[in-house]
């Protein structure tokens, strides 16, 4: 397999508004939304990116799609530096990398018909008019809106959430992209509809060999679509491994808590207390060293002094925790 996406030390700091005092002192406080992550996505891989709100997961998605410029680090897409894309090369990139949004009701221009909305990428990338209808029909078939003449001339307000999310998927696929970012694509949908979209994403993964980044706060959903999962906490990746491994043998205390916290649809489930307490720390002035340390029951001196590196705990499974790092494992 070849690398499609390779990011090294990717960073995004958002400036926050300054107080007069900070301005006079020349301080420039920033929100460390993404704080130095390394990330490689192989061609054809479906990767889940899991984290709570404020973890920076959405910013990662926006960085990978060049919807926001990185503050530091490098990011390559298909061997080329994303920061250097402009003009024609940017247009080609836009055709290759697509995004599926959280809220289907908001992500289609309300003034457009469905046909017009799905045609948008084709118009923007200069696909000749004669080819468009065929391409649209093909994309609509892929998302199981085959009898698309039923929908073609309707407006978004006339469709249900599930149908509309399929339209959004069709719009993303119509330009035959190689990379898809899906940011919470089912969180606005009802349970009964959600399953259909998840199945569709699995099917598209298998049929089209799409490379995908599936961003979600919900490990349960990622599990149905992605073979590999990354867990983010306060701008950093804390765990990375095969999804089943991450769920069955989480190595990082944060991942352990995350998995324990998910309620199950059964009455016989563990209700014991979570190992970590409190809520997310402030991303403007996060704790030194390991960012989980003030919530972590296992924290010790080293956690405050040193940022734990993302190290292998099992083949293909890495975690950023001093407890699991080889040095400590050897000492213990």
């Amino acid at each position: 397999m070849a690398e499609l996406i390779a990011a090294a030390n990717l960073t995004k700091h958002y400036p926050t508004s300054r107080t007069t005092r900070q301005m006079l002192r020349g301080e420039r406080p920033v929100v460390r939304a993404v704080d130095g992550i390394d990330l490689v996505i192989q061609r054809g891989e479906s990767v889940g990116l899991v984290g709570e709100s404020g973890s920076g997961k959405t910013t990662v998605g926006r960085l990978l799609l060049k919807l926001t410029e990185a503050s530091g680090g490098t990011l390559n897409f298909d061997g080329a530096a994303v920061s250097g894309l402009s003009g024609d090369s940017l247009r080609r990139f836009r055709q290759q990398a697509q995004l599926v949004f959280q809220n289907p009701f908001d992500s289609v221009n309300p003034r457009f018909t469905i046909r017009r909305a799905v045609a948008e990428p084709l118009i923007n990338t200069g696909v000749p008019r004669a080819e468009r209808d065929g391409r649209i029909a093909e994309a609509m078939r892929l998302v199981h809106l085959g009898d698309f003449h039923r929908y073609a001339d309707k407006h978004p307000s006339e469709l249900s959430g599930g149908q509309l999310q399929r339209v959004v998927l069709a719009r993303a696929l119509v330009g035959r992209p190689s990379f898809l970012v899906a940011d919470e694509p089912v969180s606005m949908l009802d349970v009964s509809v959600r399953a259909g979209i998840l199945n569709l994403m699995r099917e598209l993964r298998d049929r089209l060999g799409l490379t995908a980044l599936y961003i979600s706060h919900d490990l349960t959903l990622v599990r149905y679509v992605c073979e590999r999962t990354l867990v983010m906490y306060l701008g950093r990746i804390v765990e990375d491994g095969p999804t089943s491994e991450v769920i069955s043998r989480p190595a990082h205390p944060y991942t352990q808590a995350l998995i324990k916290a998910v309620p199950r649809p059964r009455t016989d489930q563990s209700r014991e207390d979570l190992p970590i307490s409190g809520g997310l720390a402030n991303a403007v002035s996060p704790p030194s060293g390991c960012r989980l340390r003030d919530r972590c029951p296992y924290a010790f001196a080293r956690c405050a002094q040193e940022v734990p590196a993302l190290l292998e705990v099992a083949p293909g499974h890495r975690a950023a925790c001093h407890l699991t790092s080889p040095a400590n494992a050897a000492a213990a």
Partner: peptide, 11 residues
């Protein structure tokens, strides 16, 4: 609420 906070409130 986020999963962890949600669980804390549920408890």
């Amino acid at each position: 609420l986020d999963v962890i906070v949600q669980r804390q409130v549920l408890d």
